[in-house]
Every structure is written in C-alpha cells, then in structure tokens.
Nucleic acid binder design. Structure first.
Lengths: 402, 402
DNA sequence: TGACTTTGTGCCGCTAATGAACAAAACAGT
DNA sequence: ACTGTTTTGTTCATTAGCGGCACAAAGTCA
C-alpha cells in the first residue's frame, strides 16, 4: 500500500468552492448573505471573499448596496473582466460556440453552419477552431473548453452513442477526439496551457443551466424534459449535481411507453414518448406536413401555438403528461422544466398538462409538482460553460494552475 | 440574521463518520485498509480508530491478522458487546422486532402475530412494547429505534400513504405516532433518554441493507425491486445513500406499463408492473389458485420453482424484464437486486430475464447490468437498524449525547 | 541471523475556521 | 444635529484536524 499522496493543504480551503458557487449562481449577493448561506462566521466569509477576490474571480463593489437599517453590505459580483471558459454545442443546424464568464453569462457567441463533412475529427476540429478564434480575440484568460452533444455520452470514458444527426459510429471516443483537437488548436497566449476539456450530453447540460441560472433555481430534484428536432431528452439534477447514472446513460426517457396503441417507434415498440411527443408526432396529429425547406423544430413550435391545431396539441399534451407522470412516480422531483417543443406544448395547454400528470401520479402529493417553462437562452451553451467551470467551482485555487 | 450557532469543534472530526461506516460495512477490516479507504495517513487512521474505540463503538483485536510479509495489521471489529439499536418491521403477517448491533447483525429477534385491532396507535404501540421488552432484556445501551413499514412514507413529515394491508387512512402521521408510543414505553435504564426514532418504507430499507451488507455491496447505483404479498416495490441507493426523491415517494415502480394489453390494474391502467408480476399475476398465468389458508407469498415462491409452471414463470419473467429495462433506461444503475417473489423468478430463469432486459435497453452497455438475488435475511429489519444507526454513522460522537 | 517490508505511534507544523472585541456605516428617534 | 441601535466588516489570538516525518514494532524471506 502506497503512502497517501494528498497533503493537508491539498484539501484546500473547503469553503472556497461552495462560496464561489453561491456567488456564481447569484444566491449570495453580499458577504452577509454568504455568511448565512455557508453557515459560518462573518470573519470566515470575509476571509473567503478576500481570497476569491485575490484569485481574480469575484469583485466586491465598493458602493454600498442599500437596504434596511444597519451598515449596508457591499455587493459581491463576478469579476468583470475576469477569466472565461469556452463553450460549444453541436446541433442539427450547425455549431455554436461562446466565450462565457462566471455567473452564467455568455460574453460572445458565434454560430456556424454544419460543414459538409461531418466525420468526428472534422466536426470536432471545426468546434475547436471556432473556440480558438474566440479565445484569441479576447483579453480574458481562458480556463476550459466544454462541448454539448446531442448524443448520449458515456461516463467515465466519454464515448458518444448513436447520434441521430451525424453519421458517427456508436462508441466514438468524443472526449478524447475533442481533447486532441483542442490540444492542436492555437488558443492564443491567454489560454491555460493543457486546456482542460469536457464533453457531455446537451439535455444534461441544459438541465444544469436551468438549475443554476434559470427555471430550476433552488429546486432540490429538478427534472428537465426536452424535445428537439427528433427525440426526447431528459436530465435530472439532484442537490445541484447531475444524476447521470453509473455510465452516463440515465434519463434516456425517449422510450417510455405512453400509448400502448400508439405510433410505431424505430425501437420496435409502439407509443414511445419519442414517437408520441416529438416534432413528427405533432405534425402527424395535426395531419399536416412540415415544409422541408425550413427548420423542423421552429415549424413545430409554431404549430404548437396555432389555435387551429388545438386538438392535435391536446392529443400530444396528454401523452407528454403520461410520460411525465411515469417519471414523477419513479424520480419524485420537486420541479419539472420543459424546453424545446415541450415548452410550447406547456404554454399551449398548461392546465391540461398539469391535470394529466396529477391524475396519473399515484399520490396526489407528488402529482402537484410544478411544471414550468425553461428560461435560459442557449441552455446548451450555458450548460457547457457550467461544465467547463465545474473544476474551478469545486476548487477555485485551480485557477492558479499552469 | 443571527450569528452562527455552530462552533469549530462542532464540525467534529470529519473522518470519524466515514471511518465508522467502513468498519460497519466490513470494508475496512484493518487500520491499514482504513488508511487506504479514507486516503489519509497512517497516523490519522490510527488516531481515528483510537477515538472510535474510546467511544466504545469498535474494538481492535490484539491478535495479529496474518497475511503477507511485513508487520501484521490488527483486526478492527465492531465492539461486542457494544451499543445497540432497536429495529422493527410491520408486515402482512405480523410484527417483527430486533435488537441490532453495528455490522448489520441482528442480536435478538421476536415475531408477533398481527393484533386484531390494527388501528395505528394500537399497532405502533405493540411495536414499541416489543422493542421495549428487547431493550429491557439486554445489557447493551440502546441508541435508537427505527421501523419499516409496507407503506410509502413521505418526507420529511413522515406520514404513511394508503396502506395495502392495514386500514390506515392515507396521511397517517406514523413518524409522530411511533415517536409518541416509544416515548411512552418503558425502555429500561440503558436506553438513551429521548430515544431517537425513525420510520421508513420497507423496500427502501431493504435496499439499504442489501447495499451495506448483502448483494449490493460496493455498487454505486443500486436498484432494488421486490414483490411482496401484493404490489411491487422499488428503491435506489446512490453513492451509499437512499434516493427517496423530494418527498420520499421516488421509486414507486408498481405502475410502470409493461404490457399494453395486459391485466387490468386498480389504478385504471392495464399491464402495470404490479398487475403483471405480483403473486396474483403468477397464479393467474399458471391458471392456478392459491390456498387461502396459507401465506400467499410463500405459495407463490413455491410456484415459481415448480417446473410444471415454467410457461407461466417465463410469461411473468418477460414482463418483469420489460419493467427492469424501463428502469434501467431511466436510472442506469450498475446493479439490480431482486427480492421477494422476484428473487424466485430470477432463480427460475436468470438468462431469460437478463436477455429481455438487455434487448429492451437502448444501449447495450447499460443493458448488461448484473441482476442478482437478494442476500440479506430479514432485510427489512436489518435496513431499519441501518436507519437507526444512521445518525451515529454520520457523527459517532453523538453516542455521547444524553 | 540479518535484510526487507509493512504497520503503528509520537511529535511538530500547517491551516482553516472560530470567537470576541472593535470599528464602520447606515437608520431612528429625540 | 446628536445619540443610540442595528447590521456589517475586520483584526487577532486560539483551537482542532490532519499531514509529514522519524522511529519503533512485528512479521516474512533468504
């Protein structure tokens, strides 16, 4: 048995991470709030903020943030300009990339169309190049680079399973390929050497984004369900961390049965949540056909808002409700966030959706879970930024490395 | 805002709890193993074991525990006789109660038939009385009392929802009622004053028991599915802690649809996991009738082992497989433990069950999750003991209180 | 018997966080 | 305007947990 490698100071100031998380998510706007949220003394909170300021991660506003009586507290904010991370997202329409600061704000964003050649190296190379250009064009230190993919991504090895949109072989080692492309890119002088990279599924990252900066704030068990171009994605955040299961494949909710006699699904079953509540399902229910020249998702969202399609919307909403009820019975979340097409279904018939869920939940209590629309724009990018920030939120002193 | 109440020493020795957990579950049989498992120095592991010994929770065997070369390590064991907790379980056939030490061992067990009057106060009073008798008859200090119920139990308020077996109104405040009955019982001079009590669902507690002392050891995400007299129960242990959702009602898996055209279920649907894989379902599939004079579960388990009922067993196994596959797609556990009637179904057709699960799992990788039989006898009682120990596993110094 | 390997322990130092006292900056009432 | 009152921020000494190191102890192996 080897002697432990970890020394006492390596454990680090244990409050530094939690404190930065609270400031990052806006839950601790002042030192005083931080004192309460961390349950420590004012002296400790003061020392911790001082250290975070010294690390260049936050700034303390000198102007007093007025309020009630007593000495006013100073406002804590994310440093601006401070360090940044790169975030990117692959989707059916193309590639998005952004430079992101702490606090969930995207500083700069670019969108590229999908190249003709969508082989993994090629596509990931384009992502790395887009990020590198953003990095070179910024004065900020760049600390990480994370990518959101529409595929399921295994953990801990980081391979992508059967993509719906690109013709990647199942098992493509995206984490390694992406790391290699980033390592080969010219990120400019202000990027951390050996820039840490990470890859994850976009629905998972959207859930993270909503939990920290959107409709899922301070939910303890947040379930996100989304419908993109094709297929339904789910994600669960438990106590602030993603629940991705033992190999990253949890919350693959697309093949939950919601209509025994429903539409056939490629999986061989009938009435899967995928086949009943995605864009195609809505068009089929409305007996319409999408215009092949325009983006499918946008057309479907329009259709969901069209009063003339109300019957079709209700049909799909009912099936979505059955799916959500099934998930509630298993996961018992305290909030559900819907995004993508499902957001519009919720907007079109919120009461009906809530009623279906409540009716099919075994115990009234868990059926009354609030179902709310997603709030974060570009949630995939924001979530990827969260993933890139994660190591520094766990240990802010890591910004000193390299 | 009040000043923090918690002082530095109150945070306590943070390693004490983890160390006791490791010894409790048998994962750290020696100081050396503890050193490795906690990732600390030998000096620290030594100090921690010394403190746990001083608290009377463990003992260090003076005889060397031989092995390879080098100085032999001393064996760490749970103190015997050491402190104990009371555990009890309510089930269709009666009341069980036990005195339990650390290490998952039941020291003494009693079983009582169900009284004629099953009103909550009456039944919980009988449980408290049974526990009190065990406490008075033992020389050990008694530190807690936990109860396993066949009902879903809400958190954090501790009310029981619709019992299948007793005629309790949904919403019965079992946690409070049980605490009151225990407070009123004469527990003898060696019970901790204001004995802490806890109540939880039996499937959840069985999962805890299997995770710590049975077939679920060192699984990171353990799913347990069980079929008792009627109805199917599920539970999930994530990283050593029960996942009970935001209000304690997670893993209510009984109404997952596994056969669109299947048997009708009281819930209004058809083909629920309950209706397709419980004792009644097996008898129906075999076109037999249970003898009303004998316990239903025992007869069903016999039937599952009967070669002449092989066709019926396969029918039910297929549906169980579909249910498990659905859960795997959502939860992505790395092990599944089956108990109750499902244990016998697994024993009768293990390969078929595994094949069905693998076939319906979206990604082969997650379909290959091992499905194993439960190992812990009286898992409900052992799990209740775990629940009663929980505060002391979190903070061993709590044994000093009162 | 002696070299080697692994385990256990005493001592020192480092560090995170407390607690108390004090200073600062606002409001409230006279 | 002056003077409490309330809340926030900081300084400083103290404390406790844990790592590192050196050394002792107790076996195996050659």
């Amino acid at each position: 048995m080897s002697t432990p490698r970890r020394t006492a100071p390596d454990r680090g100031r244990t409050l530094l991470g939690p404190a930065l998380r609270l400031i990052h998510t806006g839950q601790a706007p002042t030192r005083s709030a931080l004192t309460g949220a961390l349950d420590v003394t004012r002296a400790t909170a003061g020392a911790v903020t001082g250290e975070l300021e010294a690390l260049g991660l936050i700034s303390v506003d000198s102007r007093p943030a007025g309020g009630g009586r007593g000495r006013p507290s100073h406002r804590l904010a994310v440093a601006d300009p401070g360090p940044a991370v790169l975030a990117a997202q692959l989707h059916a329409d193309g590639v998005s990339a952004a430079l992101a600061g702490l606090g969930g704000r995207l500083l700069e964003t670019v969108h590229l169309p999908l190249p003709a050649d969508t082989a993994p190296e090629r596509l990931l190379g384009a992502v790395a190049a887009a990020g590198a250009e953003l990095a070179r064009g910024s004065r900020r230190r760049v600390l990480g680079f994370a990518l959101a993919l529409p595929n399921p991504v295994t953990e801990p090895d980081g391979t992508a399973l059967a993509a719906l949109h690109f013709d990647w072989p199942s098992g493509t080692p995206v984490a390694d390929l992406f790391a290699a492309q980033v390592a080969g890119a010219d990120l400019g002088p202000r990027a951390r050497t050996a820039l840490p990279t990470a890859v994850a599924n976009d629905a998972n990252l959207a859930a993270l984004a909503e939990h920290r900066h959107g409709a899922g704030r301070d939910a303890r068990h947040l379930l996100l369900v989304t419908s993109g171009h094709r297929g339904v994605g789910g994600a669960l955040v438990v106590d602030g961390r993603l629940h991705t299961g033992s190999s990253g494949l949890a919350l693959e909710v697309g093949h939950l049965t919601v209509d025994p006699l429903g539409r056939p699904c490629p999986c061989g079953n009938r009435g899967c949540l995928n086949a009943e509540t995605d864009t195609d399902a809505l068009f089929a229910a409305a007996k319409r056909r999408p215009d092949p020249g325009r983006p499918l998702l946008a057309q479907a969202r329009e259709l969901a808002r069209d009063p003339e399609a109300a019957d079709a919307v209700e049909h799909v909403v009912d099936r979505l409700g059955l799916g959500l009820a099934g998930l509630v019975n298993i996961l018992n979340p305290d909030r559900i966030v819907l995004s993508g097409l499902h957001l519009d279904l919720l907007a079109a018939a919120p009461d009906r959706l809530a009623a279906v869920v409540a009716e099919r939940c075994l115990w009234g209590r868990s059926g009354r879970v609030p179902i709310v629309p997603a709030q974060v724009a570009h949630a995939g990018l924001v979530g990827a930024a969260e993933l890139a920030w994660e190591p520094y939120l766990d240990d802010p002193q890591a910004v000193l490395a390299s």
